[in-house]
Design a binder for these strands. Structure first.
Lengths: 342, 342
DNA sequence: CTGTTAGCGCATTCAA
DNA sequence: TTGAATGCGCTAACAG
């Protein structure tokens, strides 16, 4: 186990008594005479030689790296997505570079200019907020980019998103089936991509069911976190008395449940709860939370595959995939279910 | 916004009518005459030039990338750590490359050989299981490495770990103070680094308190997940009737609570629960879970800073940091607290 | 202050 | 099959 400093093609070549070209060939499995192969192998072993990734990248014009940028780390949804993307791209021989942009759009722009420095071969981006400038940057970028979530106007890129309008409809319809009358909504910030989509979905679902849109029944948390959810839920319950609440994600749902319990109300008897994303905590919560599964893992997998496809074939036509959500019913929204809970 | 293919120093130099060296200087803010600066700036702008990261890396012998490898993605603890590490290294101008090794030690070895290809300047590694071979590889590696968790025997590396023996003691002592008599333990696999440490801590804590070590009171989940925790908790309650359970992490604690509730027992009245890691779910759970905060965020920050320090000064003496845990008391272990809960 | 030049480590063309 | 030579894009040493 030689604690050598570093070794290069040249060193190996000298030791093996061959040219650097031969060493390169052997290392890449290209045809060479058995003797040369043997001598190079041995020399490389003795020197602990491993080809340098940077030099190879410069030569090949590719880095074997894929960048992933999500706005909201900390949200369990993105964790699962990251994991899945990592799995897929790793299997394809890529490394995953995490670019944790904050919610600040400027971060994403910095990222895109950075990308053009060529530290990665492609990007998967899930923007929380979309500005015109981001759109412009996206359009101008030279590298393959896949967007998770809705696209900025006028941008033609590979894209995968959940049909969250339909997702909310699933939740609302389910609650109405359960006989709920006053269905409130705890959303995140409406100036975000998911926040806007979910508000839209909520309003449309009510309309389709012939229900009135009651402004008192809606509150927006300042972000998609548990802490913000506590405040929002308290505000909601101060101004109205719903018998069901749709929450824009599971964290907000857990927060709502906490506040409801604290006020001595029972779930689902007094208030039914439906969350979104179907993260682990929906299952862990007590009672378990009915949640709209927006198929985050699948979206992640599709995004990764779209990017890999474009990396293979830059000329491929733009593909835009919409993933259908499904409702996972648990105890928080069904009276019978709460007692019979597994 | 030129949709050009790519542009290099040479292109910019031609357009500006200067040498490539001048362009390089201007781009790096080195001294140059105002006229040259101006012309280069403009040419670069018009061409949308950005320096190539790969070429720069080859020349500089560094990549500005730091690799992070954690065995158990999916565990919320690591998510927080990753986030923190990302924050710190990004601020220092590094990118974070995620190398999601599975629990398979071979993955980590592959990673280390990969590292020697020089795709990153350093590594932060949090191994779940430690083998002799991993130890050997670590010792042989040429790059700066910081280990989070206990070190393999005979390895001298920068290292930061939690004092989990002390952590368990905090939990046990707290439960005894609360008047608990039969303190059980739900651990993860004991062939893992944290599993072994926590078992050790549990046994020592009992001994120091003069309590007997009852084999019936210990079960090992097959891994540190919620699902495995359900089985383990059921097995434990089948074989004994504790009035308190220390769980090796918060996921196991939530699982235990679920099983306990299902059996009609009350928390904390019948059984007190203490988790470990103090992740968000400890706070979200109903009732909120008393948890040993092993300071994962701080460990992550320290690890990142240790690595940055060594990157700056490779000759610095090896530093090994032990972080003191602290107990966060919540409703799951204190009878009065359960009612007065905030 | 500016231009010329020599590599960084590798893959690859072209001759031999 | 093998070796010598070229260049990926950039920085830094050296001249001018």
């Amino acid at each position: 186990m030689p604690q050598t400093k570093k070794s290069t093609l040249v060193l190996v070549a000298e030791r093996a008594g061959v040219s650097i070209a031969s060493v390169s060939r052997v290392m890449n499995g290209l045809p060479a005479s058995p003797q040369v192969v043997e001598r190079v192998r041995q020399a490389a072993d003795e020197l602990g030689y491993v080809p340098d990734a940077t030099a190879r990248s410069l030569k090949a014009g590719k880095t074997d790296q894929i960048a992933l940028a999500v706005a909201d780390v900390g949200n369990p949804v993105y964790v699962g997505m990251m994991h899945e993307i990592s799995r897929v791209v790793t299997k394809a021989g890529y490394r995953l570079v995490i670019s944790s942009t904050g919610s600040d759009p400027q971060d994403q722009i910095d990222l895109l200019t950075g990308l053009n420095r060529g530290f990665a071969d492609g990007l998967i981006l899930s923007p929380l907020r979309v500005t015109d400038e981001l759109g412009a940057q996206l359009r101008a970028s030279r590298l393959p980019i896949v967007i998770i979530g809705s696209l900025p106007a006028g941008v033609e890129l590979d894209n995968v998103r959940a049909d969250s309008v339909r997702g909310i409809a699933l939740a609302v319809d389910h609650l109405i089936e359960q006989g709920r009358q006053r269905i409130a909504f705890i959303n995140g910030p409406v100036d975000t991509v998911p926040g806007a989509a979910r508000l839209n979905g909520y309003l449309r679902a009510l309309t389709e069911q012939g229900r009135p849109q009651n402004a008192d029944a809606q509150v927006n948390a300042s972000d998609f976190t548990y802490r913000a959810g506590l405040k929002a839920a308290a505000a909601l319950l101060d101004q109205t008395t719903p018998d069901a609440i749709v929450c824009a994600n599971d964290l907000l749902a857990v927060a709502a449940m906490k506040v409801i319990s604290k006020r001595g109300l029972r779930i689902p008897d007094d208030i039914a709860i439906v969350g979104m994303d179907d993260t682990d905590i929906a299952d862990l919560a007590q009672p378990a939370i009915t949640s709209v599964d927006l198929r985050s893992i699948k979206r992640a997998r599709v995004a990764a595959k779209l990017l890999l496809r474009r990396l293979e074939n830059p000329q491929a036509p733009v593909e835009q995939v919409v993933i259908e959500p499904k409702l996972v019913v648990r105890a928080s929204s069904v009276k019978e279910c709460a007692e019979a809970e597994l």
